[in-house]
């Protein structure tokens, strides 16, 4: 069951797939599958933040739900802290729920409106039958304080809080059991910019204090650069490029990454004319019938014949920097 664990590595994912079957007719015969996640391989070290970025529908949330085992993978392997959790049953997974937690995108719908903040943040203790030293109430109040909320608000209901405060409640709940890994699905995208900065700083402080490991799911590339140590760019269920933050932002190799970065609007009017833009045409194709060869070839300005037939491997083109492209950018120079 146990796999040897390399020093520093907390999470290791190999060939991870999730295909959602599409069924039709009275017999519910399977007529196809949504290839939401289609062969991901990556690892995350202790205390580090890996971000998953990409356009809507590329499989980020599905990946997050697989890592936290809210979903069962179609195939592939997830090893957490040396333990293979890919196909653990609900009951076998329960003790591990303390180690992996998820923060959800929508602070409005992820909290039960009929429960008090105390009940919500204290729920993990009850579910896991954990008895904190000084009682649940005290533990919850400590958590509220930790995330910058007033401990006296223990008996209030979610609707009495603003979006940013609700996200803090969600974070407090997540921290209750001192998890090793937190998967945060768009934790700040529903928040206003001034509040977003507060929550980003809070997540960073908590990481420093408890040596937390984050898998951050996000689509805002400016926020991602700020929070991440490493970044994986996804497209149609696959990783197109993965690298440390600096290499990815300064020397993006995959044409899709280059296009994404060039589309980010920056608050500087003098850039309007100077900036060289790559405009992608059209939309992301359907994950039910993804393009063969390179999945990006229908929108790529560098595509050649080979791209339509041969899928490029996710190859290490510089130390720690992998990209899946037949004609990558920014390679060469020193070897």
């Amino acid at each position: 069951m146990s796999t040897p664990k390399p020093a520093g590595e907390l999470l290791s994912v190999t060939g991870l797939r999730k295909h959602f079957p599409i069924r039709r007719g009275i017999l519910q015969r399977q007529v196809g599958a949504v290839q939401a996640v289609d062969g991901l391989t990556f690892s995350v070290n202790r205390g580090e933040t890996l971000s998953l970025v990409g356009e809507s529908g590329c499989g980020k949330t599905t990946t997050g739900r697989l890592l936290t085992r809210l979903l069962e993978p179609t195939s592939g392997k997830i090893v957490l802290d040396g333990r293979d959790i890919s196909h653990l049953s609900m009951s076998a997974m329960r003790p591990l729920r303390c180690d992996v937690q998820m923060i959800f995108q929508d602070p409005y719908s992820s909290l039960n409106p009929r429960h008090t903040v105390g009940t919500i943040v204290g729920a993990p203790f009850r579910l896991q039958k954990v008895r904190p030293e000084n009682g649940v109430k005290r533990a919850v109040q400590d958590l509220l304080e930790l995330v910058g909320l007033n401990p006296e608000h223990y008996n209030r209901y979610p609707h009495e809080f603003s979006g940013g405060q609700r996200q803090r409640i969600g974070i407090a709940r997540t921290l209750a059991l001192k998890p090793k890994l937190i998967v945060a699905d768009e934790p700040v995208s529903a928040l206003d910019v001034s509040i977003q900065a507060q929550v980003v700083n809070l997540l960073e402080d908590l990481q420093d204090e408890f040596n937390l490991t984050y898998v951050m799911i996000a689509h805002d590339l400016s926020v991602v650069r700020h929070v991440s140590d490493r970044v994986a760019v996804m497209y149609l269920g696959k990783i197109m490029e993965i690298a440390d933050r600096t290499s990815l932002y300064e020397r993006p190799m995959h044409p899709y990454t280059v296009a994404l970065l060039s589309a980010v609007p920056v608050p500087d009017t003098s850039r309007r004319t100077r900036r060289e833009r790559i405009r992608l045409q059209g939309d992301v194709p359907s994950p039910i019938n993804p393009p063969v060869g390179c999945r990006f070839h229908t929108r790529c300005w560098k595509a050649q014949e080979v791209c339509k037939v041969e899928e490029p491997a996710l190859a290490e083109l510089a130390p720690g920097h992998r990209a899946a492209c037949h004609f990558p950018e920014n390679v060469g120079g020193s070897v």
Binding site: V193, S194, A197, N201, R225, H226, R245, V266, P267, R271
Partner: peptide
């Protein structure tokens, strides 16, 4: 408050 791609990465955001 906003992280910016057109600047050096700042160590910390300055929220309101």
């Amino acid at each position: 408050s906003m992280p910016r791609l057109d600047r050096e990465r700042s160590e910390r955001l300055q929220p309101i």
